[in-house]
Write a protein that binds this DNA or RNA. Structure first.
Lengths: 139, 139
DNA sequence: TTATATACCTACCTAATTGATAGGTAATTC
DNA sequence: GAATTACCTATCAATTAGGTAGGTATATAA
């Protein structure tokens, strides 16, 4: 599996904020967890990477919650997934942290590199608003 | 990670057999393990799925080893990986064995399905002989 | 017939990762 | 000052990844 629950849930959290905070309201994580049927405690563990990287802003206290920092069409699936998953590499050979000494003579490496690129290109072409509308996949 | 060592090693085993058994010789797994610098015992655990599905033939006894059952250009990377990995799904949502009750209303599912398709299409267009020659990736 | 080389089979093991749960503290508003 | 929210850190059970280990069955060659 290339994408775990972390990335998938993060994407759903972003979509939920986009949908329920479209007028600038703060969207509490508790509400998101209930609507999306996800564990609040687990989400609290996944979300910090999004705030720390400026994808969303969190406001504490009563009436607090989260807001997007950009418009939905300005987020790609790729950047949200990359932040939360760490790497989207289909094999460790191309994750940038596992140097392989056989790389120079490996007959399969070019294929993995191109596959990594294919996936990256696909996910980079999808924005939060594409996902919200669903138009791209409507028959 | 979508593809583990199982699939990657299987692909390298197939390539090694293609390369060193091109005149119909049997290629012993011990030789493959040495050339590819992989654990023989681990390979012995990965390879049976290839013989059982008719991708290669094994011959016991002295002078034994493995042979391809088709020409290199008649194998795709996709089928070798699918056999050894079980599933190439980028997320469990589309692996066919993890039914999700939210599927009908999930805004991200169509994207995962299309991504799965993109990957499958890419890997299906690559044959063993493409990997052997490397021409597809030569600049 | 015997030694050797090979595929083939099954059990086991360790470390890392996944997918959470749990119990707090800090800040903000009413 | 009570309630509500984000934020922080520790722990944990189950699964998976990536092997190791030790054998048996079969074929060939001397």
């Amino acid at each position: 599996m290339m994408v775990s629950t972390r990335g998938r849930y993060a994407l759903r959290v972003m979509l939920d904020i986009a949908e329920h905070g479209s007028n600038g309201e703060n969207v509490p994580m508790k509400d998101i967890a209930e609507r999306e049927d996800l564990s609040l405690k687990y989400l609290e563990q996944i979300v910090p990477v999004l705030t720390k990287n400026g994808m969303i802003e969190g406001f504490q206290g009563k009436g607090g919650g989260y807001r997007l920092t950009r418009k939905p069409e300005e987020y790609t699936a790729e950047e949200i997934l990359r932040l939360t998953e760490g790497s989207l590499a289909p094999v460790s050979c191309v994750d940038g942290v596992s140097p392989c000494e056989r790389a120079a003579k490996c007959k399969t490496l070019p294929m993995w590199e191109e596959l990594d690129d294919v996936v990256d290109t696909y996910l980079s072409a999808i924005t939060l608003s594409d996902l919200l509308s669903g138009d791209k996949w409507r028959k």
